[in-house]
């Protein structure tokens, strides 16, 4: 089971959304992390055959992304999706099931099973327009599993889910990742922290990092410090180093920042977290 993405580029008139991205994915959960505009959605769309790359190829076990057989093993949750107005949750599931080629009996079985999986079985006969954002999102997750896909691509799947739903979702994804290629993109660092086996960092259309959580955090291990300083000192430090967090504490300023060496004598070294890394890479905080 191998999804090969080979030097995939997407160029628009005024910008390059994805720049020669190469990846090989195997069974497991991959977390795609990046700021808005980093090219995550563009990459995912190309992996789903929704957008055609300007150059490069994508193939699953040799089957090209444009082939019907590829779509046959694909499940996709777009960042935003609509629905035909009068559809109930069940109508929606059956419609998508039909598009995925499931025979009627199987479609009904699978719809029921999946609606139960995302705790929407009671709302099956209710119209989608009455759904909350979280419910609609769960419906989206359910439809992506209809054809028992080998490749599951989820764009911001936890958006709109409350904490309890998010935990259930994480458990679900962990189970699914055992025998499938699951790629999910998110801004929520904690989702990725807990469920992704491999983390992919994207910035400005490029893949800047790929590895396990430990490997990724390694780049800033031993470089995260916390200290309390005076106003003037804080200003100087903000100029020199990437600052993760800054807080007023009485007279002093509390700083959490990234630095090769302790920024001052009484600074405490702290364990680096993915959150730190994310802010380091993505909030323009290291523009030096």
């Amino acid at each position: 089971m191998e999804l090969a993405i080979d030097r995939v580029t997407k160029r628009y008139a005024n910008k390059i959304a994805c720049d020669r991205i190469s990846l090989t994915l195997h069974a497991g959960v991959y977390g795609l992390l990046g700021a808005n505009g980093a090219g995550k959605t563009t990459l995912m769309r190309m992996m789903c055959g929704v957008l055609a790359p300007t150059s490069g190829t994508i193939a699953f076990d040799g089957i090209d992304v444009n082939h019907e057989d590829y779509r046959d093993v694909l499940g996709y949750l777009p960042q935003d999706f609509g629905y035909y107005p009068e559809f109930t949750a069940q109508n929606f599931m059956l419609y998508i099931a039909m598009l995925k080629g499931l025979p009627k009996v199987r479609a009904m079985e699978k719809s029921r099973e999946l609606l139960e999986l995302v705790s929407l079985e009671k709302e099956a006969k209710k119209k989608i327009k009455t759904f909350s954002g979280g419910m609609k999102q769960r419906l989206g997750i359910a439809q992506s599993l209809l054809n028992d896909p080998k490749i599951l691509i989820l764009d911001e799947p936890t958006a709109g889910l409350d904490p309890k739903e998010r935990v259930r979702f994480r458990n679900l994804i962990s189970r699914l990742g055992a025998k499938r290629i699951v790629l999910l993109s998110t801004h929520i660092v904690s989702d990725v922290e807990h469920i992704a086996d491999t983390i992919l960092l994207m910035k400005n259309g490029q893949l800047i990092h790929q590895g396990t959580l430990e490997q990724i955090i390694d780049t800033i291990t031993g470089k995260v410090w916390e200290c309390s300083v005076s106003q003037e000192a804080a200003e100087i430090m903000c100029e020199k180093h990437p600052v993760i967090n800054i807080r007023q504490e009485g007279e002093k300023i509390f700083l959490r920042l990234i630095c090769e060496n302790p920024p001052q004598d009484d600074a405490t070294g702290v364990t680096a977290t993915l959150e730190d890394l994310y802010l380091y890479y993505f909030s323009g905080v290291n523009e030096q």
């Binding site: 769309r45 789903c48 055959g49 929704v50 019907e68 779509r71 046959d72 694909l74 996709y76 777009p78 935003d80 999706f81 609509g82 629905y83 035909y84 107005p85 998508i96 039909m98 598009l99 995925k100 080629g101 439809q143 054809n147």
Partner: peptide, 22 residues
């Protein structure tokens, strides 16, 4: 043009019977 009006186009494109066929 229903698929476009109701924003179903993206999802439909990724299915076995995709948007063109629909």
């Amino acid at each position: 043009f229903r698929s476009a009006f109701d924003c179903m186009a993206e999802l439909e494109t990724s299915c076995r019977f995709n948007l063109s066929q629909i």
